[in-house]
Design a protein around this nucleic acid. Structure first.
Lengths: 223, 223
DNA sequence: TATCATACATACATGCATGTATGTTCTGTA
DNA sequence: TACAGAACATACATGCATGTATGTATGATA
């Protein structure tokens, strides 16, 4: 009576699926651990256990702790690009794109994994370490993007003159990161206040009443 | 007539002076180390060496690593209070005090030791550790002070309505810390941009160039 | 001057996390 | 079915930082 025929016999997972599944679970667990404990405080045995494995599985998928951290960074950065960076790039105006980045980043950072890059950047600041270099590279890319937008906005007249665009860009990123970290888990105010901080740093009127991203996504204010 | 007892023969330092001198050197070295490497990455042998001593001197002055960190926190906090907190309290208007805090904190953070509290707060966030509790206590005191000022400013009409005062206060602290860390060593723009971020989060016109006290006192209807 | 306590330096012991080596179960293929 | 290799688990070895115990020199006190 055992009906084996109906579905394509998913009783045994293929090895590629096993590998991908365990790798994903380990990456997610490591991301949580990194954002909570940082790099040197991260205990690989805890990472593996929270993912449902042991350190053996971890060392089978990743060369060492550093390799794991770099993979986490790449994974988080790709997720950020897809969910925040690329959508914001569709805004026609520099100021609109900057505010979209702020709101999107705030929403993104409601998941604890988002603190990874910020935490690692602080931990390895001024150090000569591959993980530090990678986080610095991502940060520098952000600074460049923000600086380009600031310059464009000033040329268009939508952003008043002020300190050098690069300094403003660094301040923007810093204020944004600081705001969303301080407000972690305090939705929905995180989105509004992140946009306000960015607007203030830019020197533009913040237009407090702008529609929130969650609001826009759901079509109505969240309850 | 020149008596022998005129000057206390300063050829040999008294033991109290020795103790105070070495303790100060160790505290300063530890503060630098903590702001650069965090707590768990801090190597006590390096701390002692940079101060001109060995670990023996350190363990003679402080019970253990935790005791050293707590002493550093207390020392930094006292310095901050004297140089930033108390001078800003003399401002008559809430908005002026908030902006004075922002500018003063930016100047204060030009010394690398200022990152200590922020770095430790991030490292021990959500942990059950005495160092984390102490940094959290300092943070909470800051939030309370900022929230009080926000409420007072709103009652006076110089700060427009918005999210709850406590949420705004946390955002203010986060944006301020993030800005000054991102702009570490980029004087003089750090001061201006820190004030701008705070003004933006508050929702007041930041008036980039000059003193904003008079304008902020008039207040502004909600945009 | 003799003695003690303090301010340090040196030497030793411990724990903990990483990395590696080995063993076991499962999957793909002949 | 048999075998090769991947996906893991277990066991072992190493390094490194902390903390403690011990030793030494300097200032205080009689």
């Amino acid at each position: 009576m055992s009906s084996i025929s109906a579905l394509p016999a998913r009783v045994r997972p293929t090895q590629a699926e096993r590998r991908a599944r365990s790798r994903g679970a380990l990456l997610e667990s490591a991301a949580r651990g990194l954002s909570r404990h940082g790099y040197s405080n991260l205990v690989l045995e805890d990472v593996a256990r929270e993912a449902g494995y042991t350190r053996g599985a971890l060392y089978h998928q990743f060369k060492d702790k550093e390799d794991l951290a770099l993979a986490v960074i790449e994974w988080v950065n790709e997720t950020w690009m897809r969910e925040v960076g690329e959508p914001a790039a569709e805004q026609p105006e520099p100021v609109a794109e900057l505010l979209a980045l702020a709101r999107g980043h705030a929403v993104f950072c409601r998941r604890d994994i988002a603190r990874v890059v910020m935490a690692l950047r602080m931990e390895f600041a001024g150090q000569d370490h591959p993980v530090g270099h990678e986080t610095e590279r991502i940060w520098e890319a952000g600074v460049k993007r923000y600086a380009r937008l600031v310059s464009a906005g000033r040329k268009a007249g939508s952003i008043p003159p002020g300190p050098p665009a690069r300094a403003v860009a660094m301040a923007l990123l810093g204020a944004l990161e600081g705001t969303v970290i301080a407000l972690a888990g305090h939705a929905p105010h995180d989105e509004l206040l992140a946009a306000s901080a960015v607007a203030g740093t830019l020197g533009v009127d913040c237009s407090r009443g702008g529609k929130s991203e969650t609001e826009a996504a759901h079509g109505r204010p969240q309850s």
